[in-house]
């Protein structure tokens, strides 16, 4: 199967500190992959390099066989770990922006997810709570029929009800022809949807593999393997 993401010897240094240390990783098309690790393990750094927000110190990263750039930005649907929409916008403005810039944006899907998330188009973004922000951002990101979805901590900091809604939205709207890369440290909530997992510790990949195979091999849930790996 073709790789949607190919990462080779990728290193990112901040002065003397290595946020990513020479990692090599391939992600197959059609897979849902969890990048797991505690805060500061390098998850967000890796994702920011893949989305073109950060430059690697050395090594290479390709998405759909292309270097990160305008083309890869057009096929990647990215959910950052912050409120990235312009403050002056209403939800409708954000919808129009996505419609204007992404040819893979599906208006009907947007309406469906927006209803599911119980959000109104006329609401100003500035007035949204953190949970609502997260729901809106995810609505926009999932309304694209992108080749690759990159979700950075999609359920961090939201209440349990919003968390369930967000997880349901991801499961119900994920297109199985696409690939999804999800970073999280809330493994228990997300492990059922992950096909492959990558454990990242201090910028290094310490364990990787198929989630089901790892469960069988270790006789544990991914959440327990996570605790084992990161408590050492």
């Amino acid at each position: 199967m073709k790789n949607i993401v190919e990462i080779k010897d990728l290193t990112k240094k901040y002065f003397n500190k290595k946020a990513l240390d020479n990692i090599t990783l391939n992600i197959e098309e059609g897979k849902v992959v969890g990048i797991l690790g505690p805060n500061g393990s390098g998850k967000t750094t890796l994702i920011k390099i893949l989305t073109g927000l950060l430059r690697q110190t050395s090594g290479e990263a390709f998405i759909d066989e292309q270097k990160v750039g305008v083309y890869t930005k057009s096929i990647v649907s990215y959910l950052p770990d912050r409120n990235f929409l312009y403050k002056w916008m209403t939800i409708e403005d954000a919808f129009n922006l996505f419609k204007d810039f992404y040819s893979d944006f599906d208006e009907n899907k947007f309406e469906e997810i927006l209803n599911f998330m119980e959000l109104e188009k006329s609401v100003k973004i500035e007035t949204l709570s953190k949970g609502m922000h997260e729901k809106l951002n995810l609505t926009l990101v999932l309304s694209r029929n992108a080749k690759l979805y990159i979700l950075d901590e999609p359920i961090a900091g939201v209440d349990p009800v919003a968390r369930d809604q967000i997880l349901d939205a991801i499961i119900n709207n994920y297109n199985d022809k696409s690939s999804m890369l999800i970073t999280t440290h809330l493994v228990r909530d997300m492990e059922n949807m992950l096909e492959d997992v990558v454990f990242l510790k201090d910028g290094n990949i310490v364990l990787t593999g198929n989630a089901e195979s790892l469960r069988e091999e270790k006789g544990k849930q991914i959440d327990d393997i996570y605790k084992e790996v990161f408590s050492q």
Binding site: G52, L53, V70, K73, S74, Y78, P80, F84, Y86
Partner: peptide, 13 residues
């Protein structure tokens, strides 16, 4: 600011 996360991930040069 955080708005850069939107601007710089748009498919624009």
């Amino acid at each position: 600011d955080d708005r850069g996360y939107l601007t710089f991930t748009l498919p624009l040069t």
